[in-house]
Design a protein around this nucleic acid. Sequence first.
DNA 1: GTCTATAAACTGATAGAC
DNA 2: GTCTATCAGTTTATAGAC
Lengths: 193, 193
Amino acid sequence: MMRGMRTNTQDEILNAAQALAQQRGFNAFSYADISAAIGIRKASIHYHFPSKEDLELALLLRYVEQFDEALLAIDQSADPPALKLRRYGELYRRTLSLGAICLCGMMASDIAALPAMLRAPLAEFFVTQTNWLGGVLEAGRRNGEFVFAGDSVLRARSVLASLQGGLIVARALQDAALFDALVDDLLAGIGHR
Amino acid sequence: MMRGMRTNTQDEILNAAQALAQQRGFNAFSYADISAAIGIRKASIHYHFPSKEDLELALLLRYVEQFDEALLAIDQSADPPALKLRRYGELYRRTLSLGAICLCGMMASDIAALPAMLRAPLAEFFVTQTNWLGGVLEAGRRNGEFVFAGDSVLRARSVLASLQGGLIVARALQDAALFDALVDDLLAGIGHR
DNA sequence: GTCTATAAACTGATAGAC
DNA sequence: GTCTATCAGTTTATAGAC
């Protein structure tokens, strides 16, 4: 047994909790909901995650980890920047099909009710994303694919904010095409033809 | 006494509830919080708003009403489209200073936990906003201020989504300048120089 | 590790006096 | 209209048997 390996139960709990959190928000589901979803008693969930704050932190750290891996996969391709951007958009787009939004977008929208312990890692997620996006934007500008003025990381912050908002509004209007059109508009906005 | 006029208490309750909802989210505050905020007993709040769903609906309808008035005020000016867009952005920007986001953006992010009764009026808010924004975009394109391709109302949906996401991300990073830069980028994206 | 049982606090909500 | 008092249900969390 590998050190640091998660048990199946822990993963099942996290999977169920993540789906609930991305769909309803972290303040709109309970240990009872997870219990019902995976067929385990509430007390058993507390064994793995003593407090809800522990659960929320584990959820966030795992999400960040998974997202970092997805960025790495895109980086390891030889895709041109515009395609990398589209693949990045698809990471978010997939959640829409599940009636969910980005876990970090959800946590950010509820930030005033978020345990203080989670604020730094949450902010770090957004910084990581904007730095990565900024690199892609800069590479595209350098090879002539993109045309835009100003700092690429600053621009990346607008791109990230747009994607996060796109998920929320598209889901509210039950219109995933809104999100697809948003990605097109983002590319058009940075001069991609 | 005018018919349909709200009592002071009702307004105080709605004011407190709105601040709490825009800061924490509707599922992260209780009647006890309102009670503490304005110095009234919980039972008295139930007298004005029997159920929390009643309160949430009243909150949404009043917000829509206030927003419509703000749009009208912008319309009645002779400002050029680009300035109208900036004034629209300022409507959102103001909430940031209060540590809040758009009430409808908040409700949209929690939509899976939202009472079914509120979904239609919430969607209507977004439709109203995009129609209004589409008109401004179209006017700007016609007078040469803006340059962009495609349907102006579709484009307006991207603009609205960006603003909503901008509020959420800017607040999470405690950096209101992110939102200001986003507005600039939106204008640049529709060809405004 | 999972269970039953239970606790303590909080939630939305109601009854009835003033 | 506002209050006190109270309710039933839910929430997070713990104790202890298996």
